[in-house]
Write a protein that binds this DNA or RNA. Structure first.
Lengths: 376, 376
DNA sequence: GATCTCTCTGCAAACCTTTGCAGTGAAGTA
DNA sequence: TACTTCACTGCAAAGGTTTGCAGAGAGATC
C-alpha cells in the first residue's frame, strides 16, 4: 500500500536512482526530468522512507532529547525551542523523561543511540564519567553541566546567584539561606559556589539547606526549616521550590517580603503569577534549546557516520567541536524581595546594588532576550 | 564501527538468523545457544538496528505525539504519561509542537507517518474531515475531539462545565460570562454547549466572550470586557485563561471572589498557587495520555502493517477498534468562587448545588484519581 | 569526420534485519 | 531396523533507499 520510490519511477518513466537523486541531489538531474518526477511524486503522495534512507546513509535525521522531568515548567520552553529548531533543519525529536533518575538516563541513551544522530542531555543527574563514556556511543550535547571535551550549553547561574545575593545584601539582609537543588545537579553546585563567594564578599552569612527535590513540594517542605534558621532572605535553587516556599511560609503566617525575602531561579512563566510576584534569576531556556540543537547538528555534519562514504578512518572519540556556550542570566526584581533588618545601615564593603545585570520587571512586559557568549 | 548482528554471529559461531531469533523469537532457539549468543551480544554491546528492523517488519516501534502547545501546562502531564506508557511497551515517542496551527498539524502527520506506527493527535485544531483523511494514512488516536469511526479519548468537560455553572448558580450568580477557547476546539464547543444548557436550567444568563487564544494573555485581554459585561461570575475555557483573568481583574481593582467569581478548567498545578486559589474543573490529563497510547498500540496489534507477512488483504480504512473513551472530570472548589448577588434568595428550580461530582479541595492534598468510562 | 567533454541516466551493490523454507540430526515409535 | 516426529539451525530473499561506476548521447573542438 505505501507508495515507494519504485512507484514514482514507474509513473514517471525513469529509473529509481533518478527519483532518488531528484530528492537528495537535484542538481544532478535534468530540470525537465526533475519537474516530471516531482509531479508524479506529488500525485502519488510519495514520501521517502526515512528508515531505508537511514539504513544506508547512517543518519536518521532524528535527535533525542532526554529530560529530567517534563512536568517541571523549566523544561517545556526548552523542548519547544529545540523541537522547533530541529524541525527547521528537517530533524525530528524523540522526547524522553527520566523522572530525575540517573539510571533511566543511561538506559535511554543506549536505547536511543541507534535511532538518532545525536542526543541532548538536559540537566543530567548521572556522573561525568558515565556521560563521557556514553559520548563515545553517540554524539552528545549536554545542557546545564560542564564537561571538558564535550560540547555544553550552560546558563550562567553563577552570575545570577551572585546578582541575587548582592541584591539581597543591598537590601540589608545578612542572614541568608540557600535551598539547594537535587544531588548531582551542576546548576545546584554552581549556585552554591557563587552564592557562597558573593555572601562572603558582602559580609553576609549563608546557610545551606538541602539537597532537595527540585519541586514545589521540595520548597514547601523546607518552610519550617527556613523559619527556624532565623534568616531574613532565601535564595532557592529554582522557581518551583521558591513558589513552594512561598506557600509554606504563607501557611506558617510568615509575611513575604516583610519578614522573609525570597528569590528563585529560572523565571518560569508562573513566577509572574504568584502573590507576591517572584523575584528571580531569568535563565534563557529557549535559547539554550536552540543552541544545543545547533551544536549537535553542527557536530553531526563535521563527523560523518557509518554509511559507506563514512569514515572508519575517523578516530573514535575525536570530536572537532567541543565549544562550550555560556548563556547570560539576568536578575528580575519583582515583589518577593524587600528591605532586610540591616536596611540603611552601613555594610562592610560592597556597593549598593553590585554590578550585576539587574532589571526591574515591567509588569506583563515582554521578556528581554538574553545575549550569549561563546567560549573555548 | 557500530556492531551488527553479523559481528555477534561471528563471535558466537552461529548464523545471523539464529542471532536474530535469539532476540525476536527466543523460544525457537536452543537454550544453550541462546545464552552464548546473549553473552556475545552483551560483550560486544550489540543493539538491534531499529531502522533495519522497521524496514522489513513494517513497524517502527515509534509513535508520534502532536501537541498544540508544549508550553501550555495542560500538556506536559499528558506527554509525560504517554511517553512513560509507550516506553513500558518498548515504544519511543516523537513529540512535535504545532503552535496551535492547523496547517502545521497536517504537515506533521504527513512527515511522521512513515516513521511511526501511529500518531496521537492532542487537541487538534484542524477539521474533522481532514483528520479522517489523515487517518487513512496512519493509525490515529484523537484526544479531546469526537469523531465517529475514530478512536478518541475525551474528557467529560460537558459534565464539568455543568457542575461549574450549577456551583455558581447555587452561590447566587445569575449573570455569568463564558470565556471561549480557540476556534476549532472541540472542548470549547462542548463547554459552551453544556454551560449554555446548564445556565438555562438554572435560570441564569450566559454571555459568551470569544473565541480567544487559550493562554494567560487571552484571559488577561478579556478582563475589561468582563467588567463591562456586568457579570458576577466567569467560567473560562481553561486555567491559563482564568489565571490571566485573575491578573487582569486585579489590575482593574476588581476583587475576586467578592465582586467576581472565576472558574477555570484543567486543574493545572499552578491553579493551586494563585491568590486566590482557583476553583476549577479537574481534567485527568495523565490518564488521557496513558489511555490514548494504549488504544493506539491496541489498534496497532490488531492491524498488521506492510511487512510481507502483512495484510494487503486488509481493506484500507477498516479499523476494528473504534472505541471512544470518556474520562470523568471533577469540580474542585477553592477560593476564587464566592457568594453572588442573589445569594440566599430563592431561585427558579434547580437544587442548591446540583448533582454533579463536587469536591472541596483540601489544600495541598493529593489529586484524586478520576475514574473512566468506556463507551461504544 | 574523428575525438573529446560534459550532462544526464541506468545498473547494481550495499545497509541490517526478519522470516519462510528446507535441511540436519536425534529421539521416539512401530 | 525403518520410519516418523521434533527441535534446532542455516540459507537466501526481501524491504526502500543511496551512490560509485559506467554508458549513452549531445555538443564542442580540431
Amino acid at each position: 500500500m505505501p507508495v515507494t520510490i519504485r512507484d514514482v519511477a514507474r509513473a514517471s518513466g525513469v529509473h529509481i536512482s533518478t527519483v532518488s537523486r531528484t530528492f537528495s541531489a537535484p542538481h544532478l538531474v535534468n530540470p525537465e526530468t526533475r519537474v516530471r518526477v516531482l509531479a508524479c511524486a506529488e500525485d502519488l503522495g510519495y514520501r521517502p522512507n526515512r528508515a531505508a534512507r537511514a539504513l544506508i546513509t547512517g543518519r536518521t535525521h532524528n535527535i533525542g532529547l532526554i529530560i529530567a522531568d517534563i512536568a517541571n515548567p523549566f523544561f517545556p520552553p526548552l523542548i519547544k525551542a529545540a523541537e522547533s529548531q530541529a524541525r527547521h533543519r528537517d530533524y525530528h525529536v524523540f522526547v524522553a523523561d527520566t523522572n530525575e533518575d540517573a539510571a533511566a538516563e543511561e538506559e535511554l541513551v543506549h536505547a536511543l543511540a541507534k535511532q538518532v544522530d545525536g542526543v541532548l542531555l538536559c540537566s543530567p543527574r548521572m556522573s561525568n564519567s558515565l556521560i563521557e563514556q556514553l559520548s563515545r556511543e553517540v554524539p552528545l550535547v549536554v545542557v546545564n553541566r560542564q564537561l571538558a571535551g564535550l560540547p555544553c550549553v550552560l546558563m550562567d547561574v553563577g552570575q545570577g546567584a551572585r546578582s541575587a545575593i548582592e541584591h539581597l545584601a543591598g537590601l540589608g539582609h545578612r542572614e541568608i539561606a540557600l535551598l539547594g537543588g537535587p544531588r548531582g545537579s551542576w546548576t545546584s553546585r554552581e549556585i552554591r559556589r557563587a552564592a557562597g563567594a558573593a555572601a562572603r564578599t558582602a559580609g553576609a552569612e549563608l546557610t545551606v539547606l538541602g539537597p532537595n527535590p527540585p519541586t514545589e513540594h521540595g520548597g514547601l517542605a523546607q518552610a519550617e526549616q527556613v523559619r527556624r534558621a532565623g534568616v531574613s532572605a532565601v535564595l532557592a535553587y529554582n522557581d518551583l521550590m521558591a513558589i513552594g516556599l512561598l506557600e509554606g511560609l504563607d501557611a506558617l503566617g510568615v509575611a513575604v517580603p516583610q519578614e522573609v525575602s525570597v528569590v528563585g531561579v529560572d523565571d518560569i512563566s508562573l513566577s509572574r503569577l504568584t502573590r507576591p510576584k517572584l523575584t528571580t534569576v531569568a535563565t534563557p531556556t529557549a535559547a539554550a534549546g536552540r543552541t544545543a540543537v545547533d551544536m549537535l547538528l553542527q557536530q553531526d555534519t563535521d563527523l560523518p557516520r557509518t554509511g559507506r562514504a563514512g569514515g572508519a578512518a575517523v578516530a573514535v572519540g575525536v570530536r572537532r567541536t567541543t565549544a562550550q556556550v555560556m548563556l547570560q542570566t539576568e536578575l528580575v526584581i519583582r515583589d518577593s524581595t524587600g528591605p532586610g533588618p540591616y536596611a540603611g545601615r552601613e555594610r562592610p564593603g560592597a556597593t549598593a546594588a553590585g554590578p550585576g545585570p539587574h532589571r526591574r520587571a515591567d509588569p506583563g512586559g515582554p521578556r528581554v532576550a538574553a545575549g550569549d557568549v561563546v567560549a573555548s
